[in-house]
Each structure stands twice: as C-alpha cells, then as structure tokens.
Computed example of a mutant assay.
Amino acid sequence: MPPVSLVRAASLDGTVPYAYAAVTAPGSLVFTAGACPLDEAGDVVAVGDVAGQAAVVMANLEVALAAAGAGLDDVAKSTVYVASSRREDLVAAWDVVRAAFGDHDAPSTLLGVAALGFPDQLVEVEAVAALPPA
C-alpha cells in the first residue's frame, strides 16, 4: 500500500476535482475532503438553507467515510465551515452536525467564512477519522 491511498466514493458526485478521503499507511487514519451539499449530479441542494445543506453534507460525509472503511463514530476531529458572518447560521449548521454525531462528541471547530467553493454553497464539513481495528 502506498503511504497515502486516495478514496473515491462511487455513490458521490464523480465530477469533483478531488478524492473524498485519504487513508494513510498502514491504514489507520482517514482524512476527508470537505463534504459539500451536492447531489449525485453535482448540483448544490437546499440553496439558501443552512440546516438543509448541513444535513446533506453530513449524509455525504458518512458516504465518504464508509468508502474508506470508517463511520462517524470513528471521527477524531472535524471542521465545520459556514459561509456566513451570522452566528445564527453557524448555530443552525452546528445543530445538524452535532445531531448527526449523536453521542460521539469528538473535537470540532466551527468557522464562519466569506465563501465556499461551489455557487450557493453555505456549509462544508471535513473530518479526520481512525479506522477501526481489522
């Protein structure tokens, strides 16, 4: 196995110019790209709806983690980006992200940013996870 193995999730949009996750040798850590609120066609969904986009982002993050052999309970650290300077928007996104993680309250950073990569994108979440023992 090479030092870094890039993971592509077949059920997520294949037109994005990056891998959805990476596993490091000997395969214990998974680094995800920022999960975006994209549907299977690569279109941003829930335009204007922070909570709606956060829900899709978390579903897409779960798919990317699963493709690498991990799940939300394996996440060691996450970063939540919200394209807003309004605290209410940050809290709306965080409430959805936190609910998706359930009792697994791994460290996380919540940031308001000026813009994200796709038009109309309001939320993005990236994560580092540890693969469960084989």
Rank of each mutant, 00 (worst) to 15 (best):
T79H: 01
V96H: 02
A83S: 11
F118D: 08
D13A: 09
A127S: 11
T109H: 12
A100C: 12
D73H: 11
V125M: 00
G52K: 04
D103K: 12
L61P: 02
K77M: 15
T15I: 01
A46H: 00
A83G: 08
M1D: 09
S28M: 09
A115Q: 10
A100K: 08
L111R: 15
G14S: 11
F101R: 04
A10V: 09
V23A: 05
V56G: 00
V123P: 00
L116Y: 07
L111N: 14
P3F: 13
R8L: 08
A134P: 13
A92K: 00
A59G: 09
A22G: 14
F118T: 01
T109P: 05
T109S: 15
S78V: 03
L90G: 13
A127R: 03
V123I: 06
A35C: 10
F31H: 10
A59S: 10
V80G: 00
D74I: 10
A99C: 07
S85C: 03
V125S: 02
G102H: 07
P132L: 07
A51G: 06
D120S: 11
R8N: 06
A76P: 05
G42C: 03
A46I: 00
S78H: 08
V23S: 01
Y20P: 04
Y20R: 11
G34S: 11
A100S: 15
L38H: 00
V44P: 02
A64Q: 02
P3D: 14
F118N: 09
V45F: 04
A76R: 15
V45E: 05
A41E: 09
V82G: 06
V91F: 09
A134N: 10
V23L: 10
D95M: 12
V57Y: 02
A21I: 11
S5H: 13
V97F: 01
Q121P: 04
E62L: 02
G42Y: 05
F31D: 03
G117L: 04
P132Q: 05
A130F: 14
A76I: 13
T79I: 13
S108T: 13
A67H: 10
V56W: 02
P133Q: 07
A115V: 11
E62M: 02
R8F: 11
L122P: 10
V97N: 01
V125G: 01
V4S: 12
A59R: 13
S11L: 05
N60T: 04
A129W: 13
R86S: 05
T15H: 09
V97W: 00
R87C: 12
G52L: 04
A93Y: 03
F101M: 06
V75C: 09
V75L: 05
